[in-house]
Design a protein around this nucleic acid. Structure first.
Lengths: 141, 141
DNA sequence: CGGGATCCTTCACGATACTG
DNA sequence: CAGTATCGTGAAGGATCCCG
């Protein structure tokens, strides 16, 4: 996020503000999976792989997502080549989404991150509680 | 980010929309490492482990970060228990930061993500270029 | 030296409305 | 059905000032 100079028409790296290290691939990746829905959409599509999912079905499987955000998220995923989009020009139209090989490869480290999260987030939560209840003072008795 | 329902006064889960799944540990984790500097600070501290780094030194090793964001990032890392903070009450004071075991354990999946990023971001960049130059239509005419 | 408080800008995201 | 366009909000993050 906040790396909004991605769509520069001329591609002028280091012109004025240059964020800091916009070429750092890790930051670019985190900017993507850091957005609220990306990782979940990738996950759902990866679980359905190699099958396809339609827009509405996808929306059903990502509870809470708005059609706007699903649309935006899918568009950027397609743009990045992590997801493939197939349109059936019927009436009404049917659009199918499928994770690509690239997207599937991302699922590997991503799911490692999920495992870590499920393993350790409870501990983090506990740390936060402790930090909130007993300020650096020593007297919890 | 934007998972701001953490401090709900009434705590009404499943009222109508319920946000989505604020208890999902993966999202909580992504909300953290998705913030611009967290992963980089963790990385720098992990590389220095088991050694400590002082505020200024840390700032020097994270090019582009402001003291505010370094401060904010460190505070949340300390709160989460990923980083330990040691204060020397001298004049002037000296504060030392050190990654904890929990923080180091996060470095594992995090570095896997970095490897993926460095391996595949170039491909993603290429996909983006292609998407921008030749829209799905065939007739740019 | 380390870092809190404040101001300001940018952007992610939600809700709603409209189109093909 | 599958989107796009628009508006409003809250939060991230940069710059600056000040304090112990």
């Amino acid at each position: 996020m906040t790396t909004s100079n991605a769509g520069e028409p001329g591609g002028r790296p280091g012109e004025r503000g240059d964020l800091l290290d916009p070429r750092c691939p890790t930051r670019q990746l985190l900017d993507r999976i850091g957005t609220k829905w990306t990782s979940m959409v990738v996950k759902v599509l990866a679980e359905a792989a190699p099958g396809e999912l339609r827009f509405a079905e996808l929306r059903r499987r990502v509870p809470g997502i708005s059609q706007k955000m699903l649309s935006v998220t899918l568009r950027s995923l397609v743009r990045d080549g992590l997801v493939a989009r197939r349109v059936e020009h019927t009436v009404p139209p049917a659009v199918h989404y499928q994770v690509t090989g690239l997207g599937l490869s991302l699922e590997v480290p991503l799911s490692a991150l999920r495992v870590w999260a499920e393993t350790h987030m409870a501990e983090i939560d506990r740390n936060i509680q402790l930090a909130g209840e007993s300020p650096p003072k020593q007297g919890v008795d």
